[in-house]
Deep mutational scan, measured.
Amino acid sequence: MASQGTKRSYEQMETDGERQNATEIRASVGKMIGGIGRFYIQMCTELKLSDYEGRLIQNSLTIERMVLSAFDERRNKYLEEHPSAGKDPKKTGGPIYRRVNGKWMRELILYDKEEIRRIWRQANNGDDATAGLTHMMIWHSNLNDATYQRTRALVRTGMDPRMCSLMQGSTLPRRSGAAGAAVKGVGTMVMELVRMIKRGINDRNFWRGENGRKTRIAYERMCNILKGKFQTAAQKAMMDQVRESRNPGNAEFEDLTFLARSALILRGSVAHKSCLPACVYGPAVASGYDFEREGYSLVGIDPFRLLQNSQVYSLIRPNENPAHKSQLVWMACHSAAFEDLRVLSFIKGTKVLPRGKLSTRGVQIASNENMETMESSTLELRSRYWAIRTRSGGNTNQQRASAGQISIQPTFSVQRNLPFDRTTIMAAFNGNTEGRTSDMRTEIIRMMESARPEDVSFQGRGVFELSDEKAASPIVPSFDMSNEGSYFFGDNAEEYDN
């Protein structure tokens, strides 16, 4: 783990906690998980779902989305002020799938948001429990990260689609708070800032007046979040320049895209947490497990152990491969979309394939898809080993990566060399080191050039047997250095459309 220093740990961010010791953190995270579980059980009762239907990941996603929508204050306010045809701002819903006479049927349900809020609060001892809501947002974000390569979004903001390893959390809503900021990748933060800068260039009043003052505060806050992700002084200094700019424009845009590229080699610290679907927490609570009393951590053995003992089902389209669908969801559960496939294969105990080789589309089923041909199958979400999630980018030494994705962002704290394609990355730096950030740029390029592919990161860190909950005997895996390590390699994943 990167030293926490003055930073709060993510469990504290996750639970809005002030400084807590490890036991208190485990208890408050457990409380959050228990609340999600209780809410899910109650919703299944309301909807009269069978046990099997309640364990269907598509039903879980609909129920999670309903509660997130019920608590989305800004959108609710907007919907009330701008009524649109056929949208009731006070209601929320989605597809629920039921097994009827041996076939899967889709039923569109509609609930009062007020009623959903009441059920959620009741499951969370009367609190709004925003930490639990954020947790579900991060699960949705991790699922998107594993399912889609955001080529269009990258290109629109002047970045290269091969930089997708920097895009963790790119679909997280803005209201996801400190826990959300911690899991956002460098590219995601750059993209958010670039969008602001572009608006400022096109709209003279963007930075002016009372609204402009708020915009400015948001801009500086985002700059500080991004600065905190960088691990070298030169990158941090460049972020200070971007933040202090009187009138952010093209120079800042250039600096930010430069920094994003540099992060492929001088990786930023991005938190990883295993956020599971509500249909995993519900049955665990129903079986009598007391998360608050037992304590829970999002970055240790607990999620692995929970998945070892969970039964989750998914709808499967006619030509999809259930094992591939399982891999997709497994990666999402562990926030591992940008991790090295060699490491993932070792931990999972079966070969993890790149996205383009998977015969599976996303987990969600569109409303126009034919239910007649839908089957369902068990998702295999178990693992051979477990490993500690990392909050750091690993040290800054790398190795060759593949054509589709030119770097990785480690999820697990496991000893290995970190793949990246130096030639491709360095070719993108057209040696432009003039301007006010020239000395920093020169320094950053120097550090990137001296990074050695064969150097090892996370020295001495290994994986653990599932029986080793105290992480007492690390097993340090050895990897084939020459092997392909990137998930979005030469990829044809669908595009994420909101």
Rank of each mutant, 00 (worst) to 15 (best):
S3D: 00
T6H: 00
R8Y: 01
R8N: 02
S9T: 06
Q12M: 11
D16G: 11
A22Y: 04
A22I: 13
I25R: 07
G34C: 14
I36M: 15
T45E: 13
K48Q: 12
L49A: 03
D51G: 05
S60K: 04
S60H: 04
L61A: 05
I63G: 02
I63S: 00
V67E: 13
F71E: 07
R75T: 10
R75C: 06
N76W: 05
L79V: 08
E81H: 11
S84T: 07
A85R: 15
K87E: 11
K91L: 01
V100W: 07
G102F: 15
K103Q: 06
M105C: 14
D112Q: 08
D112F: 07
N124V: 08
G126V: 14
A131Y: 10
T134K: 00
H135M: 11
H135Y: 07
I138Q: 09
H140N: 08
S141F: 12
S141I: 00
N144W: 04
A146I: 04
T147C: 09
Y148T: 01
T151Q: 07
A153H: 02
L154P: 08
R162A: 05
R162C: 13
M163A: 03
M167W: 02
M167E: 09
S170V: 07
L172T: 13
R175C: 03
A178Y: 03
A179Y: 05
A181Y: 05
V183F: 09
T188G: 10
M191L: 15
E192L: 11
K198H: 05
G200D: 07
I201Y: 14
N205H: 10
N205T: 06
F206K: 07
R208I: 03
N211S: 12
R216A: 11
E220C: 11
M222D: 08
G228H: 00
T232C: 02
A234S: 15
M238F: 09
M238T: 08
R243V: 03
P248Y: 01
A251I: 14
A251S: 08
E252Y: 06
F253P: 00
E254S: 03
D255R: 04
D255K: 07
D255S: 02
L256Q: 02
T257Q: 06
A260F: 01
R261W: 11
L266G: 08
R267K: 11
A271S: 14
A271E: 00
H272E: 01
C275W: 10
C279K: 03
V285C: 13
Y289T: 12
G295K: 06
Y296C: 13
S297I: 07
L298K: 04
V299L: 12
G300N: 11
F304C: 14
R305H: 13
R305E: 01
L306Y: 04
S310N: 11
Q311I: 11
Q311A: 03
V312G: 03
I316S: 14
R317T: 09
P318R: 11
N319K: 13
N321C: 14
P322K: 08
H324W: 06
K325G: 03
S326Y: 03
S326V: 06
Q327P: 07
V329G: 01
M331G: 01
A336F: 06
F338S: 05
F338Y: 15
D340P: 00
R342G: 07
R342Y: 14
K348S: 01
K348L: 05
K351P: 05
K351E: 08
K351M: 12
V352L: 14
G356R: 08
R361Y: 03
G362S: 01
V363P: 15
I365R: 04
A366V: 09
N370Q: 13
M371C: 07
E372I: 08
T373V: 15
T378N: 03
T378C: 05
A387T: 14
A387N: 05
R391C: 06
S392L: 03
S392M: 06
G393R: 05
G393T: 04
Q398F: 02
R400V: 05
A401P: 12
S402D: 07
I406L: 15
I408Y: 00
P410M: 03
V414P: 00
L418H: 11
D421V: 09
D421H: 14
D421Q: 04
R422A: 12
T423A: 13
I425W: 04
M426C: 12
F429Q: 03
G435N: 04
R436V: 05
T437P: 04
D439V: 10
T442Y: 01
E443Q: 12
E443C: 12
I444N: 10
I445Q: 03
R446L: 13
R446F: 13
M447T: 08
M448K: 14
E449Q: 12
S450V: 01
A451T: 15
D455Q: 06
V456H: 00
S457F: 10
R461L: 11
G462Y: 01
V463E: 08
E465F: 02
S467P: 07
D468A: 09
D468S: 10
S482H: 10
E484Q: 09
G490A: 11
Y496E: 04
N498V: 12
